[in-house]
Structure formats: structure tokens, C-alpha cells
Amino acid sequence: MGAARGYTLRTLVIEIAAILLALLFLVPFYFVLVNSVKSFADLLMNSAGLPKEFVWTNYPKVWNVINYPKAFLNSLIVTVFANLGIAVFSSMAAYRLVRHPNKINNLIFGLFVAAMVIPFQSIMIPLVKVANVAGLLNSLPGLIICYFGFGISLAAFLFHGFVKAIPLEIEEAAIVDGASPYGVFWRIVFPLLKPMTVTIILLNSLWIWNDFLLPSLVIPDASLRTIPLATSAFFAQYTKQWDLALAGLVLGVTPIVIFFLFMQRHIIEGITAGSVKG
């Protein structure tokens, strides 16, 4: 749009306006960062300005209180294994559903699609009961299995669209060369799905890493807390102790922000691709 016109005064005005708007978007981060290195008195007297003196001790205190390495590790384990399972199981299912569209498989695909409109909160009550009976409560593998269930329908739907675009001739050639149906999937099809796999893993990572309600319902044990759970418990304990709380928030937010800054091109491309398919 308007590509032909060069850099005019009008564009400069727009650019300045956009930069000011971006600074406005960043103001909350400024508040959190500067106040996380103030003493409590300094923070109360002077919330907007720079610190009178830098108080770094807030960070080690919070680090220990919320047992940050443990919470980080729990979040990492859950995110990694949930992602692996979702990507593997849903790509396998999508492949079969596309290549063998019989009545049963179409019904299964229909169920996956229909389930995407079910809000989590409308099934969370019986889910806790089911998780209890199935022995999934209070364990990281249990939480990971819950993510399998919630992640598979959307991922299978996205893979489904992608598999349809893979020409059948490639698979036929492999079969002629003596590949088994399993070999065809793992050696030929699965590697071809890589762009969609990356998209699904990145989008699911943001969801799972930040998720609060599901883990809060199935993980009562303090030692298994993920970062959002640990932060929430910390806030309940240290209400209005903003010097510590803000340092805790910085610690909580940092890993996912770093992840985003490294992966942002793929994440933004993934959203674009995912939304076009959806």
C-alpha cells in the first residue's frame, strides 16, 4: 500500500506517532522494572521515577521464596513434553484421517473440529473428577496428559489441512521402493510437516507456559508448581509487598520474553499461517 511513494513528511509524522504509541505500550514494563530495584519506602514515595539507590536484594529474596529454579524446571518439563506429545500424536492422527477418509475417521475429525468451541471452563469441573479417577492429579505427567487432550484437536485440525497439500505420488514412490506404511509416515510425511510442526509447537508453548487455571486445578502440591502457580501463591502470601512482588514478576516474565525475542519471526509467521488456515 502506497509503496511507490518514498519517505515523505507525512510518513515521518506517522513514524513518530507510531514510536510514541510503542513507548506507551512499554510503559508498564518500565514501571515494573524500575520499581523492582527500589527499597519498599522508595517505591511507595516515588513510584514513577528512577530509584534513589538500586536495591538488588529483592531478587535473591524472591528467587528463594518461590524456589524459582524448581518452578522454572517444572514449567519447562511440562511445556516440552506436552508439546512433543501433541505434535507427534496429532500429526499421526491427521495423516491417517486425511489418507483414509472413511465414515469413522470423518466422525473423529468432526469431533476434533467441534471440540474447538468448547471453553475450558465449561468442562473443568468434571475434568478434575476424571483426572482424580485416572490418577492424573498432583503429578507433572498427569498435567502433561491433560495438555495432550486439550491440545490435540486444534493441532490435528491444522495438520489435517497441511497433509492434504502433500502430493500422494511422493508416498506412492516410497511404497514402490518397499517402505512400510509406518516408514512412509516417519521418513517421508513427518519431515515434510516441519513448518506446521514448528508453528504448532511455538503457539502451544506460549499457551502452556502461561496457562494458569488448568495447573491450578490439578497440581495442589507446592513442589510441582509451574511459574504462574508459584507467582500466584507468592502474591497471596506477600500481598502489597510490591518490592518483592515486582522482582517476582520480572523473574516470571523473563523466560517467555526471551523465548519470544529469539523466536519472534517464526511465531509471527505461525500466527499468520494458523489464522489463514483457521
Binding site: G85, F89, S90, M92, A93, Y95, R96, L97, H100, N105, I108, L111, F112, A115, I118, S122, I123, M124, I125, P126, L127, K129, V130, A134, I145, C146, F148, G149, F150, I152, S153, A156, Y182, F185
Partner: peptide, 23 residues
């Protein structure tokens, strides 16, 4: 069929479908 669709369907039924019907 069991190998490719089984795991996805199992977790989906356990975590989404059964709670939905129970609800």
C-alpha cells in the same frame, strides 16, 4: 488405524469428551 489415530483419540476422549458428557 489403532497406531496412528489411537493415541490422539484416547487422550482426546479421556480429557475432553468424557468430562464434557459427564458435565
Amino acid at each position: 488405524q489403532l497406531y496412528f489415530v489411537g493415541p490422539a483419540l484416547f487422550f482426546f476422549v479421556l480429557i475432553v469428551l468424557i468430562p464434557f458428557v459427564m458435565g
